[in-house]
Amino acid sequence: MWRLIRRVKSPLNVETLFGEQAVARGELCYNLNLSPCTSTVMVCVGSLWLLLVWPLCAPGWLAHKCVVYDDASDWPSDTNCPGVRHAASCSGVTDLRRDLRGLPGELRTLCVDVDRAKRVHSPLPVASFSALRRLRHLHVAGCFSRVLNGSFRGLAELRTLTLRHLYVPLDCCESAVVPAALLDLPRLRALHLHGYSLRKLPPHVFAARLPRLRGLFVNATCDDDLAEVICRVTPLLTSLTELTLAAPLVQELTRHNCSWNGASERRDFTTSANQRGDFPTSANQREDFTTSANQRGGFTTSANHPAVRLTVGMVTTVEHGALSCFPELTYLSLKMNEQLQEQLNKTAIRKIDLLDYGQPDLSMQEICAVVSAFSIKRVDLHYNNIDFSEFDPDQS
């Protein structure tokens, strides 16, 4: 049962509350259980038992597994749950419907951490959050075996959804997400997936109509095939303004062939160019090729292309035409043992704003050539040794 809480500025005095005579007669007993933020007093007067919960530091609501705060200033400083007003944080949740029952309907932000004793939980129940129809931001930490059609029913006002595996980066969640589950989120603007395997999701998982989705943030810690990951997000590229893909296990940059959704003009054009051997190998050829593709509808132009941040691992193989969906990158992080410029020239990338690059032995001359070829604005380098022997600052 939920109890309204008021701020207590002075220590709790049982005698003041119930009278000195009651205490003296032994008719009142209590069990004080202190936590960093609350005092729980179990009181018995005669045969009547009362449970009073008093906070020592903040107003709000308390339950067995949830804390609700009306104002962000009352949140503990170490909280990982973002919220300004009307926010709740629940931990150790084992049964969503039971443990969240009674939460105030006016909540705007809800953070749920499931019980860590189980690596994978049962399917996310249908209408798990349907009583919270005014919810704007939902952050769920845990791995569910399935996300069902109707799991998010009733959340038509939701703007942000986060699904995060508790064991990142040591493990990944191979959950089956039914594409229709996202149809209940027509106002969704940002989707965060951390530790969920995109390769295990249905190929058309994002084919559902998400007209207002602008940001997709994916930390695919266990996916080693970047082409498969790209195929999952392809349907969203025309509407997104921000895309972040982190796949640290990826070692090969290969062409993608997303045949499941009917090859787009961009993909057909790229495949055809690959088959003819027409992909560019120099910066000028790559620029001409990309411009031609844009004019023919082959690539998304910079005017409506999302800001793409891509992180991969130690790249050992690069196919001609790789990353054809991303001719412009806001951020690229990778490591290589091969010649950087030679490998990047194989891709369809023509511009990189920020390059985060690692290699045991670097040549400053090559780095400067790459910066010029890809119009790079900033470079973060990680190396053991760097060679300046061929570097001429006057020509850079």
Rank of each mutant, 00 (worst) to 15 (best):
A220Q: 06
D113P: 02
R25G: 10
A208L: 04
T241P: 01
A88R: 01
V371Q: 11
S375M: 05
L332V: 06
H382C: 12
F299C: 13
C258W: 01
V233W: 02
A22G: 05
Q395S: 12
S259F: 12
S77K: 09
H192Q: 01
L334R: 05
V126A: 12
P55K: 04
L110A: 08
L236T: 07
N385A: 04
R98E: 14
A63Y: 05
Y331D: 07
T347W: 07
F391N: 10
T244L: 07
L163A: 09
R309E: 15
R199S: 14
N219C: 08
T160H: 11
A293W: 02
E27Y: 00
L103T: 08
L17H: 08
A58I: 11
A369E: 14
H204M: 04
S259H: 08
D115V: 03
A88T: 13
D268Q: 14
I376M: 09
R350K: 12
P76D: 14
S375W: 07
H194T: 15
K351E: 15
R25I: 12
E287N: 08
V312A: 05
A348H: 00
V114R: 04
Y167F: 15
R232G: 03
L340P: 00
L310V: 09
A58P: 00
C81Q: 06
T238S: 14
